[in-house]
């Protein structure tokens, strides 16, 4: 079975909270419909990895194949519009704080990904809103919602255009602890129902495990001879495992 996304020998330098870090992903596969939590302390490069997976920033080195497209190659050729189109069709994103547009209604925010991907589907917007318990809020603006409701709108938006992959960056960082469990469970349930693969970055591996996520923890290495701290995400190739 070909994985939905496969990274080989990917490296990216980035600035952490204080020191310079090097993110290394020697090998990383994710199957279609699979859910996985990426765990690591803050500043370990989780967000950087997610951004790279979201086609939002280029890898410095290595290969990245997503849904049959050579992403690293597209970056090298500077095909930003092709990357944007791929992003619009195949990827859903749940930012930390929801990232809703204040000038659109809840319904408008959820339908935004459909509009960008060019696949309007009002029935799906209503269905997702019902599933996530926000159908009473559809006509309101984000400012009138609670933090938990906003996060659910963000989840609905990430799924509205039926993406193959949903990326969530610390989706529980800004919500109440009790709510955090519910948000993680909701994400997993909805992605499973939609058949989308799910990657959640979290600094709380226990909570993710409780919610039923397999957890991939990052290995952090103290600065070596070059003075660069390294952060490694490695997941044995599924082909090899089989």
């Amino acid at each position: 079975m070909t994985p939905l996304l496969a990274l080989r020998g990917v490296a990216k330098a980035y600035r952490g909270d204080a020191a310079a870090f090097a993110l290394e992903v020697p090998e990383f596969d994710l199957l279609a419909g699979e859910a996985l939590a990426l765990a690591g302390p803050s500043g370990s490069g989780k967000s950087t990895l997610l951004m790279m997976l979201a086609l939002a920033s280029p890898p410095d080195d290595g290969e990245y194949v997503f849904a049959g497209s050579d992403v690293a190659g597209l970056w090298r050729k500077g095909r930003r519009d092709a990357l944007a189109a791929l992003r619009a069709r195949k990827i859903g994103v749940v930012p930390q704080t929801g990232g809703l547009l204040p000038y659109l209604t809840v319904a408008g925010n959820i339908a935004l990904t459909q509009r960008i991907a060019g696949c309007a589907d009002p029935a799906r917007v209503l269905g997702l809103a019902e599933e996530l318990g926000i159908s009473a809020q559809l006509r309101k603006r984000p400012a009138a919602l609670s933090v938990g409701q906003r996060q659910r709108v963000a989840i609905a938006r990430a799924l509205a255009h039926r993406p193959a992959l949903v990326l969530a960056d610390e989706p529980t960082a800004s919500v109440h602890p009790e709510l955090a469990d519910a948000v993680l469970a909701l994400l997993k349930r909805e992605c499973a129902a939609a058949g989308a693969a799910l990657l959640v970055a979290t600094h709380d591996p226990d909570r993710a495990a409780r919610a039923g996520y397999p957890v991939l923890a990052c290995e952090t290495h103290a600065p070596g001879a070059d003075g660069l701290a390294r952060s490694v995400f490695a997941r044995a190739s599924l082909a090899k495992a089989a």
Partner: peptide, 15 residues
């Protein structure tokens, strides 16, 4: 900036 970045992240082209 944040709204625009979000739109870009959701796949809106630069043009």
């Amino acid at each position: 900036r944040r709204d625009l970045a979000l739109l870009s992240l959701l796949g809106v082209r630069r043009r």
